[in-house]
């Protein structure tokens, strides 16, 4: 128990889905008259829909030990991303409790908060701070980030003029230089060309082999195999099993 860095107990997340009750609209005229009616009779807007509960996560419990590199796998809609969002405190769970001991950085998307009008240099600072780095930290790693991304030449060009490959490389370069105690990563390695992907994977390995705890969602089993030492399998919003990966 002592070295459980993340403890997830009976986490559930419910969403409410709205359904429209009516049959299919036949014509544009029907649609228009119906909408017009609903303006004058506001109650109709509400009576038309009924809600259904949807459990994106249902009673999920597991724990992660210090230094574990855990891959989370499962089909589309199994609840992997919801789990990561709850762990990164973006959404709150409906039930359950999670205890985390350490600084968490989550990487749910490459280039969160990049602003198209800002230059590459400015975006490194902005994105770095959004991901939770301090200014001094970004400054000290600035050269490394630039070198990793390989966009030195365009550092003072607004990123809206970047090719999509350059954009993604710069964004990943910032993220790769995060140094939290716990790193949460969602399917972000599938970017750039094959060579850059290899570079990313290598960087991720460096990060995870330095004793940090990593949670990693991917559909790419090869990436999970090479990065993680454990895997958690989710299916239909439920926790199925946790297993040690054989190298």
């Amino acid at each position: 128990m002592e070295n459980n860095i993340i403890q997830v107990e009976n986490i559930s997340k419910r969403y409410l889905l709205n359904h429209q009750n009516t049959g299919s609209y036949n014509s544009l005229r029907d649609v228009i008259t119906d909408k017009a009616q609903s303006i004058f009779r506001p109650s109709k807007i509400f009576s038309k829909t009924n809600t259904e509960e949807f459990w994106a996560l249902n009673n999920v419990s597991f724990e992660v030990k210090q230094g574990d590199r855990v891959g989370i796998i499962g089909r589309n809609g199994a609840g992997k991303s919801t789990l990561l969002k709850i762990l990164s405190r973006i959404v709150t769970p409906t039930k359950g409790r999670i205890t985390i001991d350490g600084r968490v950085a989550s990487l749910l998307e490459v280039g969160t908060g990049f602003h198209p009008e800002l230059t590459g240099r400015e975006n490194i600072f902005l994105n770095g701070s959004i991901l939770g780095m301090r200014k001094a930290e970004i400054k000290s790693k600035f050269d490394e980030i630039v070198e990793f991304s390989g966009v030195e030449q365009f550092l003072d060009t607004p990123v809206k003029r970047y090719s999509s490959g350059m954009y993604v490389r710069l964004a990943f370069a910032v993220a790769a230089h995060l140094e939290p105690e716990i790193l949460i990563v969602d399917e972000v390695l599938a970017v750039g060309d094959a060579e850059f992907q290899k570079k990313c994977l290598g960087k991720m390995k460096d990060v995870s082999s330095s004793g940090r705890t990593v949670l990693f969602v991917s559909h790419n089993m090869a990436a999970i195999q090479s990065l993680c030492d454990k895997a958690i399998y989710l299916s239909k919003a439920k926790y199925k099993k946790q297993a040690r990966l054989i190298k």
């Binding site: 860095i5 405190r89 999670i98 968490v104 105690e181």
Partner: peptide, 11 residues
Amino acid sequence: MSKHRIVIEPS
């Protein structure tokens, strides 16, 4: 353990 303990609960 670490001083950054985070507890996530519904409300």
